[in-house]
Write a protein that binds this DNA or RNA. Sequence first.
DNA 1: GAGTGGTCTAGACCACCTT
DNA 2: AGGTGGTCTAGACCACTCG
Lengths: 254, 254
Amino acid sequence: MIGVAIDAQDVAALFGASRRESAPAYRRLKNVITEQIGTGRWPEGELLPSENQLVDSLGLSRMTINRALRELSSDGLLVRMPGVGTFVAERRSSSALYGVRNIAEEVSRRGRRHRTDVVFVREEPADRRAHRMFGIPEGSPIYHSRVVHFEDDSAIQLEDRHVHPDLAPEYLQQDFTERTPNDYLSRIAPLGKGEHIVEAVLGTAEDCASLGIDAAEPCLLIHRRTWSEGQLVSAARLLHPGSRFRLEGTFDSL
Amino acid sequence: MIGVAIDAQDVAALFGASRRESAPAYRRLKNVITEQIGTGRWPEGELLPSENQLVDSLGLSRMTINRALRELSSDGLLVRMPGVGTFVAERRSSSALYGVRNIAEEVSRRGRRHRTDVVFVREEPADRRAHRMFGIPEGSPIYHSRVVHFEDDSAIQLEDRHVHPDLAPEYLQQDFTERTPNDYLSRIAPLGKGEHIVEAVLGTAEDCASLGIDAAEPCLLIHRRTWSEGQLVSAARLLHPGSRFRLEGTFDSL
DNA sequence: GAGTGGTCTAGACCACCTT
DNA sequence: AGGTGGTCTAGACCACTCG
């Protein structure tokens, strides 16, 4: 066996300390486990106590334990194998295809910590490409931001974004460590239409340096444009290290 | 009151008819409800029978009913309100899922010529992974195909696919140069649910040789699984050279 | 007050994996 | 054989909504 098993008594201590919360027991147990995984105190592959051990140490019924573990498994934080045990899942980001909107939310939904590094936020003269896309005169000001999104301490997205200055006049004054650009934009400009293009590429040397990855690592590049009231609001280039990020989506026959 | 309530006896009839499935009860109940909503027989806003009514009509314990309804609620198909009832949710934003459906169609829609090379189509003993995914015994036969799709004369997709033998018994006899595996499967097994996972990777040496690309070229890898009637029909690994392929999609005011 | 969903218990049987 | 998770039961108490 690789990882040292987590002790049921440790879980009991953490769970006991959460008694102040008024949430239901299964919720509190989920919170405790999510926190341990999020902070890295329980590393990938670590074996959790069995359901029966937790029944004894936590004083809850097995159904309650089972619900907490089952939901965490369906959230992708744990991996359960019948006859074997419950393990901390490998940390590999994944986002709903149509959920590429709010990366901070996706990250925290997985019980991880989201952090943003701002590379720059500035006004620039529009080049020909911006002129064509946004329909503003060449040389007139346009906003340009570049930030890096972290999940815990690994970079998972380099966001390079151009924004129409008239539709988001306060853009330069925003603190993007507090609220992501996407967050801000979706608040001030009601989303009308969006477009995604996804491809596999290698990052430039600068991209790779920002993300802290090797130059040969394949990356997922998402071009994302959003319109509001028929006007292009924002065009973003979202670059994700292939080893740390993937897109997920489901569809129904509807 | 708006919607006419759904009768618990109707649910019982549908549930009884699903007895042939060997799935657990909560799963069958979820399938039955999903199907009714998917086909529109239960319109938006419709009131479902209460948990206690279903306990009586289905002969299941309330915990089992509750699990089915709770999970459907978390899946967004139902909306539950304590003290009020359970309702069919409003249609989910039909986030345009990327059109990975039929590559032959996509190619010819672009005015190019589509061609398929069959690498192999064969029966294999299921390994552990197949066993877990498809729920068939380890070592029992499973179908495995690998074909390369060309757009004009450049390879754009390596399709490696495993298929449940019971749900597509004639799979080995198909001529995939005439009709793609996807085409065939969607004809014989009505699509229920699908899942995509998209990531950026490097192909194996064999992959790159099949696609005629350099080993260092980033590729878009799509894992695609499709279910019919709650049973996994097919799991495919679709590998696209990054330089020759990208995914596009649009979405509307979600 | 009657009905709803939300939660929880203390058992149980099963298929599965490991030894 | 013994441990694991997967499922299920038949009860129970609660906060909530509605008439």
